[in-house]
């Protein structure tokens, strides 16, 4: 079943940069879609246009039966809460405990006054601890989030996204700030929630070796346009130079 569809999506920033140009693709439920491309090719913009962190310039984003680009206010927040997102810089709330950070994923379903006072229900707390168990950080629940290592912080971010009970998880270069072994650990957790919890994943990545290991399908962007769509095994030498340019050399991450 098609979960997400982008039609003629264009994005031009106020400074005149055209980041996305006529992007057409669709995502099936349960896919692990990886978006690759050089820095500045529009990967991050694409993810941010899906959940409307950046408003689109023209075109449409269909999510289930809704047109996300036409939603505003409460309706938009409701749909956003069904789309989790993790970031390259983890973006956890500093000086707050891991548990508070995970509970922040439930903000959309918590009344404002309760969330200001930190009054989460018992079920929400148990759920948060359960998601921390999934990412293997249950014992760190009461530690300050900024005291964790990079890989651990990204796992907390994953737990926070899971707290939203999302249909889709957007991952914006989730391992670009991590070392190789931690990268694999974080990618394995993403794979786990994709396979075991059935959450569809759209992930931006840099390393082709990671793409081949984890992606079920690949989308390549260049200068804001889609230049390749297909299976990860089919990216050969020729496609590689098309996507990354003549001078690129493939490096792998083990």
């Amino acid at each position: 079943m098609t979960l997400l569809r982008s039609e003629h999506l264009c994005k031009t920033y106020p400074n005149g940069t055209q980041a996305l140009n006529q992007i057409n693709f669709s995502v099936e439920e349960g896919e692990f879609l990886v978006v690759i491309g050089l820095s500045g090719s529009g990967k991050s913009t694409l993810l941010r246009c899906i959940n409307q962190l950046h408003p689109v310039s023209s075109g449409a984003i269909h999510f289930e039966q809704q047109r996300l680009d036409q939603l505003q206010g409460r309706a938009l927040r409701q749909q956003r809460s069904r789309i989790g997102m993790i970031f390259q810089q983890f973006n956890l709330i500093p000086r707050k405990s891991v548990l508070t950070n995970v509970l922040a994923g439930a903000l959309a379903s918590t009344p404002i006054w309760k969330s200001l006072l930190g009054l989460y229900s018992k079920e929400q707390r148990e759920q948060a601890l359960a998601y921390l168990r999934i990412v293997g950080l249950e014992h760190k629940a009461y530690v300050r989030a900024d005291n964790l290592s990079g890989g651990q912080q990204q796992r907390v971010a994953i737990a926070r996204a899971l707290m939203q009970n999302p249909k889709i998880l957007l991952a914006d270069e989730p391992v670009a700030s991590l070392d190789p072994s931690t990268s694999h650990s974080v990618m394995k957790y993403l794979q786990k929630i994709n396979r075991e919890l059935g959450v569809t994943v759209i992930c931006n990545l840099h390393f082709l070796s990671l793409v081949r290991t984890y992606a079920s399908r690949v989308l390549a962007l260049k200068d804001g346009k889609i230049v390749y769509q297909g299976a990860p095994e089919d990216i050969d030498e020729q496609w590689f130079t098309t996507i990354y340019g003549e001078e690129a050399v493939e490096v792998s991450i083990n």
Partner: peptide
């Protein structure tokens, strides 16, 4: 970063500021 992350969870602007 944290502001963007909170917005992405679908939080209300008041919640975004508070968290």
């Amino acid at each position: 970063g944290p502001v963007e992350a909170m917005t992405a969870t679908g939080a209300h602007p008041i919640q975004v500021i508070w968290y």
